[in-house]
């Protein structure tokens, strides 16, 4: 009965709708991250958190490089380069995990305040924690993509799952590009 409509709603149209949906989700999520930025400036103003600069630069570089490999993975799957796709994806996931280790494992352990220590602690742990949560979900998505990629589920024509998780990964990366200077670089001690 609905076969006529199904024929009309082709894969391309579905793809367009899915892309729109994903971008609407980013718009929504961006407001949440924006709210945390507001909280940071409202509570801390021009105050520098006096964090470990080396570690901050390191995790930021790791995340940016991971975004590069994510992009490579997406390009390679669309070119039909299966091996390159899997390799880039694995590198992306490993870099993502290193980022999490760097922020949650090292930075949280070595910071000179805990989450309960005043507004600085609250803001810092909330912002990095919320971002790390998104990185974690990104890693879960990428792992599923890796699993399905190893099972050869993606073709150069049909690989929306790769594209979507890549966009999500870049989105989380862009958030960090804003959070990094706001947490590490700006302000006076």
């Amino acid at each position: 009965m609905s076969s006529i409509n199904n024929a009309i709603v082709s894969y391309q149209q579905k793809l367009a709708i899915n892309r729109l949906g994903l971008w609407l989700f980013f718009a929504s999520d961006a407001f949440m991250f924006g709210g945390l930025l507001v909280a940071r400036f409202y509570l801390l103003g021009n105050k520098n958190l006096n964090l470990d600069q080396t570690l901050g630069l390191l995790v930021t570089s790791i995340l940016l490089i991971s975004s590069f490999f994510m992009n490579r993975a997406e390009v390679m799957v669309s070119e039909g380069n299966h091996k390159g796709f899997i390799t880039s994806l694995v590198i992306t996931i490993l870099l993502g995990i290193s980022f999490l280790v760097g922020v949650v494992g090292l930075e949280w352990g070595s910071a000179h305040f805990g989450p309960g220590d005043g507004a600085e602690g609250a803001v810092f742990y909330m912002m990095t924690g919320m971002h790390a949560f998104h990185v974690l979900t990104g890693i879960i998505f990428l792992s599923l993509v890796l699993r399905n990629g190893l099972n050869k589920k993606y073709t150069p024509e049909k690989h929306y799952a790769v594209e979507a998780s890549a966009n999500y990964w870049h989105f989380v990366d862009v958030v960090w590009i804003i959070y990094y200077p706001v947490l590490y670089l700006m302000g006076t001690i």
Binding site: A39, L43, P115, G116, A119, A122, V123, M126
Partner: peptide, 16 residues
Amino acid sequence: FGMSFFTPSDGGNPIL
């Protein structure tokens, strides 16, 4: 977790 966003005595601000 005792994260003081809104308690003024601990650096927070309820207006936020």
